[in-house]
């Protein structure tokens, strides 16, 4: 299945694009999805600190990702007052 992933914040910078596509054999949970991503983008370290949202809802590590799901990868952001 083909997964389309929306990137935000520093993740966008690391990948160099605001979207990315990932070919995936079978359904994965959020945790293994992060591991797949980590292997493909070694620079995206500390992925455990990112949050994954599936279909506009933040997901826990054990939630399954299915074909056609909208996946968003959200890193923490701190900027504001500087």
């Amino acid at each position: 299945m083909k997964l389309e992933i929306l990137l935000f914040g520093i993740a966008r910078e690391i990948v160099g694009s605001s979207k990315l596509q990932l070919e995936q054999e079978e359904p994965v949970d959020v945790k293994s999805f992060k591991q797949v991503l980590q292997r493909r983008y070694p620079k995206m370290n500390h992925l455990s600190y990112y949050k994954v949202a599936i279909n506009q809802e933040f997901a826990e590590d054990d939630q399954l990702i299915k074909e056609g799901d909208e996946i968003a990868l959200i890193p923490p952001v701190s900027g504001g007052a500087f």
Partner: peptide, 10 residues
């Protein structure tokens, strides 16, 4: 929190 340096400040 993420480790320092992962997310740049403004």
């Amino acid at each position: 929190p993420p480790p320092p340096g992962l997310v740049p400040s403004c």
